[in-house]
């Protein structure tokens, strides 16, 4: 089995796959890649199943040595990487020579980058998934972010190296805002459907929520994306009883500043939810970084569904990967 040795771990680098669904009754949330599309495409570039475990890097990359060599792809935001002193690109498969070190820099766009490796990162699965749940210390590599000196096992390569890239014309549709439009400087648009308690908020509060722009707080992590800006007037239409919460739920806690529940979400919560981010925009959430500016756009569930179908069709099409 080949290995990867972590020489520099970056800011917060963890082992992630597409997460573990099904354990809500135990209080265990799914976790998994913050940008699942980047992970899926990265795995396809190196010839893996889409769910194979890879390294998720946050804002700052790291240095990774490949004593036995390997086939890798960097996806997600552009972190700028070098292999043996040469620049290498994002969204393409690469052959890493035996003994070489891949150096991944700070992000030049969104929050997260993925280092996918042919054969996948191999860790002991927890509840059927290799994902790290950082907050609870469960899953992944010893339940924690990587440190210098860690040695990761890589699964056996099943196919020879093939040079593959992702057709860049799809980016605007897959990350409509947080990757593609980042350069425009406009507030990034996050589409939401109504939350369970939307009707409890006064009309004016809901209008303000839709009209405001919010800044992503420094306190943002894989559990929740905290927003700063004009507070939303608290609801007065009902009495909250703790209940299950969805991925992407937009909670309005006392104080009125929204919190979006993210991949390491709590499974239940007691704050009212004014909205929920649509599934097709969850990958965009994974690319939000502190100080980014967002605004919410309300859509109907049917519209959210058709966006999801179109996106999935695009993702599954063969032509998205160019050989």
């Amino acid at each position: 089995m080949s290995t990867i040795r972590v020489e520099e771990p970056g800011l917060l680098t963890t082992v992630q796959d597409l997460g573990r669904e099904g354990f809500g009754p135990l209080g265990v949330s799914a976790s998994g890649a913050a940008d699942p599309i980047a992970l899926r495409l990265g795995n396809r570039l190196v010839g893996n199943a889409e769910n194979a475990a890879a390294l998720e890097m946050t804002l700052v990359g790291g240095a990774f040595a490949f004593p036995e060599g390997g086939v890798v792809a960097l996806t997600g935001s552009d972190f700028g990487a070098m292999l043996d002193g040469n620049n290498v690109g994002t969204w393409e498969s690469l052959e890493v020579p035996r003994g070489a070190t891949l150096r991944v820099g700070p992000s030049r766009s969104g929050a997260r980058g993925y280092l996918c490796v042919q054969g996948g990162i191999v860790v002991t699965p927890f509840l059927g998934s290799s994902s790290t749940h950082v907050m609870t210390g469960l899953g992944g590599y010893q339940g924690r972010p990587l440190r210098a000196g860690d040695v990761l096992q890589v699964g056996a390569a099943t196919a020879p190296f093939r040079r593959r890239t992702v057709d860049p014309s799809v980016f605007a549709e897959l990350w409509p805002h947080t990757i593609a439009d980042r350069a425009s400087g406009e507030p990034m648009r996050i589409r939401v459907t109504d939350g369970e308690q939307s009707a409890w908020f006064a009309e004016a509060a809901r209008g303000a929520f839709a009209a405001n722009v919010y800044r992503v707080s420094e306190q943002t992590n894989r559990m929740g994306i905290r927003l700063e800006g004009t507070p939303v007037a608290e609801q007065s239409g009902g009495r909250m009883v703790t209940e299950g919460v969805s991925l992407g739920a937009v909670q309005i806690p006392p104080g009125g500043l929204p919190i979006i529940l993210f991949v390491e979400q709590q499974t239940t919560g007691g704050y009212p939810k004014i909205a929920n981010v649509i599934t097709a925009d969850l990958a965009s959430l994974g690319q939000l970084r502190p100080r980014d500016v967002v605004r919410f756009e309300r859509v109907q569930v049917a519209a959210a569904r058709s966006v999801l179908f179109r996106r999935e069709q695009l993702l599954r099409s063969r032509k998205i990967i160019v050989e």
Partner: peptide
């Protein structure tokens, strides 16, 4: 159906929107 989140008087049912509708 992909996940179940029970609460005091409710269950949140998470599902695969590609294969199931509300």
């Amino acid at each position: 159906v992909r996940n179940l989140h029970p609460g005091y008087g409710s269950i949140l049912v998470k599902f695969d929107a590609l294969t199931l509708t509300h």
